[in-house]
């Protein structure tokens, strides 16, 4: 078992004929992901990957023809909000948006709409998910992780790869790795994923990778302290980052003193979480 994606995932790729879409679809298929369809408006009826994957004009048509149950989005930022609305309206229950740089007011509207529909969104600005040996949805390099019993959840992209790779080097594997993305407004937060790991029979321990800004790590700490039975190891990036550009008075009022690496580390430690000094220290803290 695993969370969110497994060998039964029937994946649709929005933006399959673009550069990034095509490159990463090739990688996902090579990994063994069951990619059943692609969508590029205006290219319906064509085939991608040497005739292996049918391309449709809309998500609705693709869903009707292939019964896809997950969509991954590789379209440019200005078109990504529409792609998310389209997938939700077509009845796709799980949407993964890789695209970086989506406007924040667009994301607030998307998130609000998807919440009303009960659709789960991972991202945007995220590396996607990997259930080693079963399915890869997104851009996490498949060969840097092996199957195992460690659940990984992260706000970062490449920093997540570092951790998976460090685990692999000592023979530790992941049940599922979920990159929730680094944008201020995203679809799924730490607590959602921690809860899934808590109830996943194949996950024994959890790694949580956070960074400065926002209060998601503090909320995760509260959840870990009150609800989680499985051990959690963490790393918080940005411990030496200079104080960021402040968002005027309003930002300070909303976030108060929260958002620093120091504050997050303190909250996590108080919740019984072991916090690593750097990512390559994580495997030893899991032992």
């Amino acid at each position: 078992m695993s969370i969110l994606i497994n060998k039964n995932t029937r994946l649709l790729v929005q933006g399959i004929t673009g550069n990034e879409g095509l490159f990463h679809t090739t990688q996902m298929v090579a990994y063994g992901t069951n990619v059943v369809a692609g969508v590029t408006p205006g290219k319906g009826g064509e085939w991608a990957l040497d005739g292996k994957i049918p391309v449709f004009d809309s998500v609705k048509l693709a869903k009707e023809a292939t019964d896809a149950n997950c969509s991954v989005i590789f379209v440019p930022a200005r078109f990504a909000p529409d792609a998310m609305f389209e997938a939700a309206d077509a009845g796709i229950p799980l949407i993964v948006c890789i695209t970086e740089g989506v406007a924040v007011q667009d994301m607030m509207r998307v998130r609000s709409y998807l919440d009303h529909k009960g659709v789960r969104l991972i991202g945007p600005n995220c590396p996607g998910m990997l259930t080693p040996g079963e399915s890869k949805v997104g851009i996490i390099p498949g060969n840097i992780a092996i199957p195992g019993n460690i659940g990984v959840v992260s706000r970062s992209g490449t920093l997540t790869y570092e951790v998976l790779y460090a685990l692999k080097l000592v023979g530790m594997g992941a049940s599922t790795c979920v990159g929730i993305g680094g944008d201020p407004i995203n679809g799924t937060n730490f607590i959602d994923v921690l809860e899934m790991f808590e109830y996943d029979a194949d996950t024994e321990k959890v790694v949580l990778i956070g960074e400065i800004g926002g209060t998601d790590e503090d909320k995760a700490a509260e959840y870990i302290a009150s609800k989680m039975t499985k051990p959690v190891v963490s790393f918080i990036a940005g411990q030496t980052a200079p104080p960021g550009k402040r968002m005027g008075h309003a930002g300070a009022i909303i976030e108060g003193g929260a958002g620093t690496a120091e504050g997050k580390i303190k909250a996590l430690k108080a919740a019984g979480v072991k916090v690593a000094k750097h990512p390559e220290e994580i495997p030893s803290l899991l032992k």
């Binding site: 970062s156 992209g157 920093l159 680094g182 411990q239």
Partner: peptide, 12 residues
């Protein structure tokens, strides 16, 4: 570095 999280980590 590629990625903000990894860039901050590299600085750390």
């Amino acid at each position: 570095v590629n990625g903000a999280g990894l860039a901050m980590t590299s600085m750390d």
